[in-house]
Design a protein around this nucleic acid. Structure first.
Lengths: 141, 141
DNA sequence: TTCCGTACTAAGAATCATTCTTACTTAGTA
DNA sequence: TACTAAGTAAGAATGATTCTTAGTACGGAA
């Protein structure tokens, strides 16, 4: 993702474009690891030593509110961030606390159709997430 | 749930039966509100003024490890507890932060079968949860 | 029934992820 | 170019939770 794309992304959220916002967005969007605020800070501070941790938190929150990234709380209660906005599920590794994306259109369709047929009385569904907890299989070498 | 049932439940987890454990388990099991540790503490301290908040946290954690209750982290990062051990889904109200249970055997079967047919390479699934976020519908009176 | 060992508990300090506060900086528009 | 409102720094504050140390009590064995 080049600077122009990032600039467009940030502006599309109605936000001012700043250098720090650029490097923070870049850090989040170039990883699939669903980073914590702390991780983003560590990535970014090396080339931007003046940046403060508080600003990273605040900037990530601003991005979430502008809907250019999304956040979720992991099973340990820590905020994780994701530049991919499309609905997808997560695989939580109970042992390593790693989180992986899981995309399956068939599953998404299946569930969406299920809830279209089975409206929940008194509840308007806005987001559906499937959370899969387990562990990575040992590779037998 | 009477005292004998609670005693059996606690003993079934290999834990010593104590008065405080009884009242904590009772508080969790008599509510459907998916209580926080703080809520349990408030419920329990009125008739047990000597109990400490730290003990409530510790006891709830002990119950989780003994698998007699379960916990999850809500969308604000706060631990919530549930005496119902069977797999079920949760409805999160984005506006009020209320959490409701959602049981549907058809959905559970659908998803279980989906993942039996679609094994995830390198990942052993242990728990599956469907999280539904939305809001309660306004009642038109 | 008594004793004893180990698990349980109190209370407040410590921890950690995150937010707040206040003052300074800067992007972008007029 | 000037101005203004948004953005940022830095460290204190917050809140949920865990830890530490010393005292308490359950339950099994004698």
């Amino acid at each position: 993702m080049d600077i122009e794309d990032i600039k467009n992304k940030i502006s599309s959220g109605g936000l001012k474009f700043t250098h720090q916002r650029m490097v923070i967005y870049e850090a989040v969007s170039q990883t699939h690891s669903h980073p914590t605020a702390e991780w983003v800070y560590e990535q970014v501070k090396e080339n931007n030593p003046s940046i403060s941790l508080g600003t990273v938190y605040k900037t990530l929150d601003t991005f979430v509110n502008a809907k250019i990234i999304q956040k979720f709380i992991d099973t340990n209660g820590v905020m994780r961030f994701d530049a991919v906005l499309e609905a997808h599920s997560h695989l939580y590794d109970k042992e390593t606390n790693e989180i992986r994306d899981y995309h399956n259109h068939q599953l998404e369709t299946l569930i969406k159709e299920f809830f279209e047929k089975n409206k929940i009385k008194d509840f308007e569904v806005e987001d559906i997430e499937v959370v899969l907890k387990g562990h990575n299989k040992q590779k037998i070498n």
